[in-house]
Computed example of a mutant assay.
Amino acid sequence: MKPFFAIPGDKALEQRVFLVKEITQPYFSTEFHFHHECQLVYVVESAGRRIIGDNIEYFESGELIFVGSNTPHVWHNEQKYFEGKDKLQARSLALYISPDLLVEHLDPFGNVSAVKNWLKKAQRGIQFYGNAKTAILTLMQQMLREQDLPQTISFMTLLQKMMVTKEYRLLAGTNYVNLYSDKDQSRMDNVFKYIFRHFKRDIPLSEIAAIAGINVHSFCRFFKSRTQKSFTHFVNELRIGYACRLLQEKEMSMAELSNKCGYRNTTHFNRFFKKIKGKTPRDYKREISQLD
């Protein structure tokens, strides 16, 4: 394959169709961004909040996700990673793919419409699980030890497994479209970081609009056009995601749980939880207990 690659800021990735690497840092890059190259990420060791398109969830060690071309994303670690007290690390395996050259170099071998369709679907973000995740991860690890033709064969096998498996879920919404421009990235990065730090308390629109450097009306329109959801709904999704994490880890009363997640009373907490998760906090907790 003719090599080519261009992830901004990393010269080692230039001139490659695909590249696999291990990444170990005190914490993941906090920059909300998007790029033309696709990215397969296995989280070896880390935890925090993840945004892919209009999807926002908690992540932890062991997840495997493919991010399609030009899909906005960030893995943002929990605050304790930035404090440096517990010697935590953010470790991952990453496989980068140039989608244009992948299609270009597969084209002489036959119809590439299936590859194109899959790459388009991947712009919603794909999370793999089950036997598929195990097989894909094994191939990623194998590629780290290989070079040249053996590595290319492993890559093509991995690509095929990603395309044909049924053990996956799409993350961003069906109608999600990336409406960000390059100049939006810095503004939204500042906004997301501020929300992540302060979502457990009320954040007035005037306060968050000031972080974005625009007035309240412009901020509401800007935020919804980029994330495809209102600021209020976004914060509630973040809070309920945090509640789900607490329900998995700790025993506490509904009053204590709602307070920790930023709700003034359990009525509001229960209403938003059911709206977002489709079930009550108690039902969610019961299902988690049955899995254990």
Rank of each mutant, 00 (worst) to 15 (best):
A47I: 01
K166W: 03
E104D: 11
C261L: 06
A132Y: 07
K121Y: 05
L101R: 12
L101P: 01
Y242A: 13
E256L: 12
I65K: 04
R221H: 12
P108A: 07
L137W: 08
G84L: 00
Y81E: 01
Q248E: 15
A114Q: 06
T266K: 09
R201D: 00
M162D: 11
E83C: 00
N265G: 09
Y58P: 07
Q39L: 15
Y168H: 14
F269Q: 04
K285Y: 09
H76M: 09
A255R: 15
V191Q: 05
G84Q: 00
N215I: 00
E22P: 07
S230M: 08
Y242G: 10
K250S: 10
I126E: 02
E57N: 09
L119K: 08
D107G: 00
Q141E: 15
L149Y: 13
A114I: 03
Y176R: 06
A94C: 13
V235T: 13
L247P: 14
D86Q: 13
M143F: 12
P8I: 01
G9R: 02
D148Q: 14
E57C: 13
V43F: 11
E37W: 14
G241Q: 11
Y168A: 02
E37L: 14
N270L: 07
E31W: 01
P99F: 04
Q185F: 06
G278Y: 03
E146D: 15
I288G: 02
A210R: 02
V67E: 03
G241L: 10
T227A: 05
A12V: 08
T71E: 03
E31D: 03
G9K: 01
R49E: 14
Y263L: 10
G53K: 04
I203S: 04
R239E: 12
N117R: 13
L88S: 03
Q39D: 11
N131K: 10
L246P: 15
T165Q: 07
R50M: 15
K277A: 12
Y180W: 05
C244T: 12
F272N: 07
D86I: 00
H233M: 12
S206R: 00
N265W: 05
H35S: 04
R245K: 15
E256C: 11
V216A: 01
E104K: 13
L158E: 04
T165F: 09
H36I: 03
K87A: 09
K183V: 11
K2G: 07
V67W: 01
G262P: 09
P281I: 02
A135F: 04
L170E: 15
